[in-house]
Structure formats: C-alpha cells, structure tokens
Write a protein that binds this DNA or RNA. Structure first.
Lengths: 330, 330
DNA sequence: GTGAAAGCGCTAACAC
DNA sequence: GTGTTAGCGCTTTCAC
C-alpha cells in the first residue's frame, strides 16, 4: 500500500503538503494540489484511517445502537441514520441489542466506545434503567427522553403523543363512545408515548378509559388482543400496524366486520397498510426526517461543543384515513 | 484517557505485558494478569483501537454494503450479519446503496476500503455490471453469484431456485393448469433465481408459461399486477409477500375470491403473512442462517487465507401452506 | 504557501 | 514468562 510519503516524493513536495491536500486545508496552490492529486491517483493512494485517527484523536465515525429487530420502525430509523450520516461525511459503526440481553444498551455503548467513535446514536431505546457507562462523546437519543450521562445529550423524536391523540380523536369524531387500545410493551418509550396520547385524548372528551391490552408489536399479539376484545367495543387504536393487522384478522375470524362493526386505527403506515383488507387507517411516522434532524444535532454537538443547540420543533401529524374506520353501528 | 503505559506503571510491569493481557496472549502468569486487569479497571483503561489498527494492520472490523431499503428481506439479512459478526468478535461498519445511485456498490465498497476493513459483505446485490474497484480484502456476496475481483470471494444464499420451484409445484399439485408469476425487478439476482425456479417447475410439468409481470417488490406493484391478471388465471406465485398482498387486494376489489377463484403464493414469510386475509401460503427465507454461514466463510477467508473453504450446502425448503391456496374452481 | 520534526498508543520481533 | 526497541502512517506544531 502506498503511503503519503510515496505520493509526496512522486509529486515532488513534502509529506505535509500531501496531508494538506487530502484534508482540504487552505494554503495550497492550485498547481501543487493538482500534482499531488495526480500522483495519488497514479499510485492508487488511500488515506490510512487508523493512522489518521491515532494522530488526530478523531475517528470521523458515529456509533449506532440499533434494536435487533426487523420491525419496520427500527429498520427505517437505522436507514435514515445511515443516509444522514453519509451526507455529513461520517462513517457508521453499528451494534445491535437483542431484547432481553442482560448487557443491553450498556454493553452496546461500551463496545462502541472500545471501537472508538466521535458520537453515539441510541435508536428507540427501551427503558432499562440507568446506563452505568461513562460516555465521553456526545449522544443522540432517538425516540426517547435524553436520560443519559454524557457530556452532551441531544434527542429527536416524532411527536408520538399528539399522533396517538389524533388517531384516538379521529375515532371519537366518528361517533364512537370510546376507543380501546392495544399498546406496545410497557418498557418501550415509544409504547408509553402512544398510550399517554390515547389516554389524554379520551380524557379530553370525558370518554371512559377501557382496560389496555399490552402486546409485543407483533401481529400475533394483536391477534390475541382481538380475540379478547369485549363484544361491545366498536373502536380500537393499535400502537402499530402489525398489531392492527393481527387484530383485524381475529375480528374477521370472529365474524365481526371492519369497519362496519369495529373500527381500527394503526400506527406507522407500513408499506402494506394500504393494501390489506380493509385498507388501514393509520398515522405515518416520518422516520427519515427524525433521523436527519437528530443527526444534525449530534454532529453539531460533536463539532461545536461550546455552542447552543439548534432546536427543531416537530408538531406535524399525518393521519392517513383509509377504509378501516367508520361510524359505529347504529 | 489512560494509556497502556499508565496501566503498566500502576501494575508494576512493562507496557508490553499489558498488551499481552489485553490480547489474550499466552505466557502471562495468572498473578500478573490479575494485577494488570485490576490496574486497568482502576484507571478506566480502554484499548485504543486506532493505535492497534495502525500497528497491526488489522482493524478487526467488517464492512457491510447494505441495500438502502426497509424491505423485510434486506433488513433481516443485515440483522443476521450483525449478530453473526458480533459472535465472531468483529465490529461492523455499514454503508448503504440507494437504488439508482450512480456510484452504487462501487462507491460503497470504495468508502469501506477508505475506512479500513478486514473483510466486506455485499448483501443482496443488484446486477450492476462489473465493479471497477480493486479490493484487497476477502468479500462475501450474500444472495448472488460471487462475481467480484478480490483475493478471496465467498458467497452464501438461500436456494431460491428450489424454493420457487416448490411454490410453483404446490400450485400445480393442487390441480391448476398453470401458474402466473409476479416477478421482482429484473436487475436483482434474487428476482432472477425465483423466476428461473418458477419457469423450471412449469417446464417439468409441461405447463404453459404465461407472460411475466415485473413488479418492484412493493405491494403497490403487486396491486397493479392483480388488476392486469387475465380472467382465466387461477394461480399466481409472487416473488415476495408484499407483492402477494397487493395482488390479493386487487383481486378482492375485483370480486375474485382468494383462494376460491385464484390461489396466491408469496415468498419470504414476513411476520404479518399469517394474519392477513386470507392467511398467506408462502416460502420462508432462512435469513439468519444464511448470514451466519456466510459470515463464517468470510471470517475463515480473512483469518486463514491459505486454507480451503468449508463448504455448506443449503437444500432445505420451507413451504408454509396457509389459506391462500386451494384447488382451482371446478 | 510550504517543510521539518515530534509524537499519537499500540503491536511485532527479538532478546533475556 | 517478561522486557526492549522499533516502527505503523498519519496530524500537529512551529519554523521559514
């Protein structure tokens, strides 16, 4: 492998000048820059990242703690983070946490710290209690409150509370006396936000609050919820689309028609939501823009440690009304 | 940040001994090991990966070129890779390729090479023609033929051909005269394998081969296919579950019942497949074991460059028969 | 605008 | 079993 001295020799300049060119530093004449670039090209030179990191103390990479599931939400967030990171010039190191893993987020963060990263993204964490690792780089928490011991913690999330509220209100507006809720696992912040939003929407209208069914995000758990749904229920808000799909299946098997007998609203707007029977009314999550905003905050915290953070407000709610919701039976 | 000399000083040993302990090298007495570990603990010492990589020439990391989509298949593969990599002690660096990106796989591989990785995984690539980068590390190609210019190329994939064959045969066995096919995009190797398997199964039974509809993996494209499905078609094999779901939606809207009028088989066994109406007959893809086997091959190629590769054969086909398939109408 | 010298914190090779 | 000596290929600092 050619080194920067080799390029320097060929271009007839000092090694430092090669370094200048590859770091886009000022004070290099156009002519010298050309010669260096040509020499590098000819030799097939690549900057050695390890040497660079060792000398500069920065790795130019961001570590991501991802959820170890192929669920649409977490997968979409990861994708958004990757895209955003690439745009900012940072490389991505990914570690995932299996749910139920004793080490969990703590272990994942520690392993990223071992690898050496300039910043860390924690995607949709589960409430596992405090994280007992000292983190000396900025941290972005996506989809949860920024409870973390680090020099700089930023967070970004969708406004799940208002989104859940809107979903519930939509059903109330259609004339349903109340709305049942199939929640996600209690330990997930994402589940809690939706639960709270639903609860608040019911309270605002003085609607009775029926008991909550706690699922695990899977269609199977939605199916279980559907089999246990009280006979007098006419409207259900599920905390994600998969559970809504399972719920609809159970109702269909029981001979209860959606939306004629029971209305169902999901959450996420997964790609197939528009194509199941009946097409699902749901709330769309803007994963990509959350990831993008979050990363912008993180990069800011990484590169300008002293400055105040640009704050972005996310009030938008995208309720997609399709065919799974209707007024209650007469 | 404490360095290994600091630990050495505190433990009363040489710096090299600290290095030995942290690399699990032999020839360190239990007593010294303990003292070193205690000192490290006390100082909060972490090995510096950049220095390590610079000195050893190895980064202990694997680069992954992932598809920039939240599709269930690619997302599951990525997850499987992450799990498998962690088990082998390698860190993961991820770059994704947006479809239609001019740089594509070439750019992604090049960026991984810049970052410095010991091996590269290319996940479910699209046939983009030759990749004009010189790669000096072993490469694992997941789900495609190993066409790549690198010192060592290994590959692992499901036996998509036989799986598609089994899906088609299942419909033929039910008595359908022939089976229509909704394919994936032509440029995807994954689409081609399934197409070939379907074709071969029809030929083996002397069944007529109807024109193929080429979708884009989305439920929407399956829906389009469904609207164009000939009136005399009684059986369809879709190259993934999402397209099958869209297809069923179109048939349902047109008043054609599944499976009474038309049988449909999907591919993947996505988590909601069992809960749509009707529950979908499909072929399950063993993403996790493919990733695991592939990574074992890659790590072998990385660590034992000279040796022959352990070969694993994957013949198993998991056809999951649910309620979307039945004999043709009388 | 450009160059020389001094590390960054490890591992490798070899001595003892 | 343990220590010594050289680098690995850059960036940093400062001189010109």
């Amino acid at each position: 492998m050619p080194r920067s001295v080799d390029v320097a020799r060929l271009a007839g300049v000092s090694q430092k000048t090669v370094s200048r060119v590859f770091n886009d530093e000022p004070y290099v004449s156009a002519d010298v820059r050309r010669r260096v670039l040509d020499a590098a090209e000819q030799l097939g030179y690549r900057l050695n990242n390890a040497a660079r990191a060792l000398a500069s103390g920065r790795t130019r990479s961001i570590g991501v703690v991802a959820l170890g599931t192929a669920l649409y939400g977490p997968a979409s967030l990861l994708l958004g983070i990757e895209r955003a990171a690439r745009d900012t010039g940072y490389a991505l190191r990914v570690v995932s946490t299996a749910e139920g893993d004793p080490a969990g987020v703590t272990g994942a963060v520690s392993s990223l710290l071992d690898q050496g990263v300039d910043g860390i993204v924690i995607s949709e964490p589960i409430d596992d209690g405090p994280v007992p690792v000292e983190v000396d780089v900025p941290v972005l928490v996506l989809g949860a409150p920024p409870a973390f011991a680090a020099p700089r913690v930023v967070s970004a999330s969708v406004n799940a509370h208002d989104m859940a509220w809107a979903a519930t209100e939509h059903l109330l507006d259609l004339g349903h006396a109340t709305v049942h809720h199939v929640a996600g696992p209690r330990r997930w912040f994402a589940a809690k936000d939706r639960l709270d939003g639903w609860r608040a929407a019911l309270a605002a209208r003085d609607a009775a609050e029926p008991p909550v069914f706690e699922g695990d995000w899977s269609a199977g758990s939605g199916y279980q919820a559907g089999r246990q749904l009280p006979a007098d229920a006419t409207a259900v808000f599920a905390a994600n689309d998969d559970m809504a799909i399972g719920l609809i299946r159970a109702l269909t098997e029981a001979g209860r028609k959606v939306p004629e007998d029971v209305s169902v609203v999901g959450f996420d707007d997964v790609p197939v939501a528009a194509y199941i029977t009946p097409p699902l009314t749901t709330v769309r999550q803007p994963f990509d823009s959350v990831a993008r905003e979050g990363l912008a905050l993180l990069v800011h915290a990484m590169e300008k440690p002293g400055q105040a953070l640009p704050v972005t407000d996310r009030r938008q709610v995208d309720l997609i009304v399709r065919a799974s919701t209707a007024p209650p039976p007469a």
